[in-house]
């Protein structure tokens, strides 16, 4: 590499300036809006400072949304990783190289779909009377009705299943590729010691992949924050507030129900602070 070249400066600086402007302007402006009392219906506004934030802490729907978001995050991340590791190991164990390639192609398809498409596909499938996914239940019970999307107890899991359908299958492919990069010697050694197949994976291969698996989980945690499309199409936060996550609640406060843009922005700012702090800390730990 030549020591003196203008290349790094000409290549990096314009891009960074654009990225900084595009990200900092909305971020800072979000904070400014959160300190005001803007509404969609009028152009007049004034500064109310922290009163939006104070209101939030007494808003039971907001606290519910926090709780739903946490549940969503935990359910989707855990289920995705479980599906990914389970199917990845299975492919590694029982599928021939040709079959592996076919499964890899099939498993990538769901994640490529727009979330809106995936949500529709499953909304149809979960329809209590005509859905293909509820058909086996109707068949077995002689026509009883099961409506997973309109029961508070099951709605979140029904929507989460779509997220896992998209990401779990995709991550299974990555887990398989990771397993394929491992050197064969430790596995051979364990086999010679008469370890069972599942023991080999539980005690040898998966611990060897600890670092990439944690990175994978990190990626899923970030992507799980983007639940809005699925929930918007499938349940709109309902039944009641059973699937109302923070972004859904912010959206409906800001644009559907009351047009309280500042209130919604205050919520978004809190989300932003929470995620940036959490993920920065996690990232530093993953890198260390």
């Amino acid at each position: 590499m030549p020591r003196r070249s203008s290349l790094p400066v000409t290549f990096v600086v314009p891009t960074l300036v654009v990225l900084l402007i595009l990200s900092m302007v909305p971020t800072l402006y979000a904070i400014v809006i959160a300190l005001q009392n803007r509404e969609l219906s009028s152009t007049a506004y004034s500064y109310v400072w922290f009163s939006n934030f104070v209101d939030l802490f007494f808003d039971r729907r907001f606290l519910n949304a926090v709780w739903v978001s946490v549940k969503w995050e935990v359910v989707t991340v855990v289920a995705t990783m479980a599906v990914a590791i389970g199917l990845g190991v299975l492919m590694f164990e029982v599928a021939s190289p040709r079959l592996r390639n076919i499964y890899c192609l099939l498993f990538i398809i769901p994640v490529l779909l727009p979330r809106v498409s995936a949500a529709f596909v499953w909304k149809f499938a979960y329809h209590p009377l005509y859905g293909i996914a509820t058909y086996p239940y109707r068949l077995l019970t002689g026509g009883l009705i099961f409506d997973p999307l309109s029961k508070p107890a099951t709605a979140l899991f029904a929507v989460a299943s779509v997220d896992v359908w998209q990401w779990g299958l995709f991550f299974a492919v990555i887990v398989l590729k990771l397993l394929e990069t491992l050197p064969p010697q430790p596995i051979e050694a364990a086999r010679l010691d008469h370890a069972r197949r599942w023991q080999i994976h539980a005690y040898v291969t998966l611990p060897m992949l600890k670092a990439p698996l944690i990175s994978l989980m990190f990626v899923k945690m970030i992507e799980s924050l983007r639940s809005f499309d699925l929930i918007y199409v499938m349940t709109r936060g309902g039944p009641g507030v059973a699937t109302e996550t923070l972004d859904m609640y912010a959206f409906s406060q800001g644009f559907i129900e009351s047009g309280k843009v500042s209130y919604a922005s205050a919520m978004a700012v809190l989300m932003m602070i929470a995620t940036v702090i959490t993920f920065t800390m996690l990232w530093k730990r993953v890198q260390a």
Binding site: S23, V25, P26, T275, W283
Partner: peptide
Amino acid sequence: QFFVLSLRFLPPVAVAIPLMVI
């Protein structure tokens, strides 16, 4: 690199609301 990745942490609502006003 971290800055570029951290842009992905920003909740889309937090970007979309101020941008709409802007």
